[in-house]
Write a protein that binds this DNA or RNA. Structure first.
Length: 284
DNA sequence: ATGACATTCTTGT
DNA sequence: ACAAGAATGTCAT
């Protein structure tokens, strides 16, 4: 719970670090900017991500981003077989089973779909969770982020994607998902997270590819374009990645520009940096 | 560091 | 059908 409340300050820290990314700010400078003591700053970060401020600022540098890209190692995992089958590097990752929604539903813009939604505090601010189905068959269709006070905008953004669906607030249902997603202790292959992708064919192939990028790794937009056998569609890939309705679970934050630059993020570049830094802590 | 432009796919009209 | 735009990439300056 303290971890969730920390994001407001972590966000300021990440902003500060990316603003001054060229001249490695010292812990003292960071603490001063935050208006905290040096030890309070230390504690804030370890509580938030199990990462010291220094380790965190290293994790969000260009160099580190390039390192994520470099390790060629495995080709992108084929996302269609990930249930139960995992590479070592995936051991600590969030496990997901996913299916694509029949194109008909996409064309109807969510018509006939009942969606429960709810906001929950998470390490990256407020998470908007959207779920269809109940009990065993409940499946995640949307995940968005915003800062406290911007909930309405985020909800409108998401509702605009499937304007014909029926929306009901239901914190009991969405809370289960939130807990499972943001607490690495709940990540396990035995209880994979059920996810349903609603989008065009092209988008789904792109999101499929994203799901195959393990924690602690990243791919460039052109890597992804090559993987779906449309090597020149880099720009269209960027658009599709940005359109991803299940942010974080479908790890769109692991898509980087060829130079390692973070290029863009629908829910704010700062959040993308925070996610990568947080993941560096989870991975280590 | 900045800017022009090539290129592919989605989406709204 | 068509045109605009997108979380890119590359090359020139």
């Amino acid at each position: 719970m303290s971890r969730d409340g920390d994001y407001a300050q972590v966000r300021r820290a990440v902003e500060f670090l990316s603003l001054n990314w060229n001249d490695q700010p010292s812990l003292e400078e960071l603490a001063e900017y935050l208006g905290l003591g040096v030890t309070a700053t230390q504690k804030l970060f370890t509580r938030w991500a199990g990462l010291s401020p220094k380790a965190f600022s290293q994790a969000v540098t260009l160099d580190h981003a390039k390192r994520l890209l470099r390790d060629e190692e495995l080709p992108i995992l084929d996302a269609t077989f990930e249930l139960g089958l995992s590479s070592p590097s995936r051991l600590h990752d969030l496990f997901v089973t996913h299916e694509a929604m029949p194109p008909g539903i996409w064309k109807l813009k969510g018509g006939g779909l009942d969606i429960s939604y709810g906001f929950h505090a998470c390490p990256f601010g407020q998470a908007l969770v959207m779920v269809t189905g109940e009990g065993e068959k409940a499946t995640l269709v949307g995940l968005a982020f915003c800062d406290t006070g911007e909930e309405k905008l985020a909800l409108e953004d998401m509702q605009g994607r499937w304007p014909n669906a029926r929306y009901t607030e239901n914190l009991a249902i969405t809370g289960q998902f939130a807990k499972r997603i943001f607490d690495p202790a709940h990540w396990s292959p035995e209880t994979p997270l059920r996810v349903t992708l609603i989008g065009t064919d092209f988008q789904i192939r792109v999101w499929d590819t994203l799901l195959g990028i393990p924690l602690g790794k990243a791919k460039t937009y052109s890597d992804i374009a090559t993987h779906i056998e449309k090597p020149k569609a880099v720009r269209a890939v960027g658009a599709a990645v940005g359109r991803n309705p299940i942010s974080f679970v479908v790890p769109c934050h692991r898509a980087l520009g060829k130079s390692g630059a973070l290029t863009g993020y629908h829910w704010g570049l700062t959040r993308k940096r925070a996610m990568l830094g947080w993941e560096a802590g989870v991975a280590g």
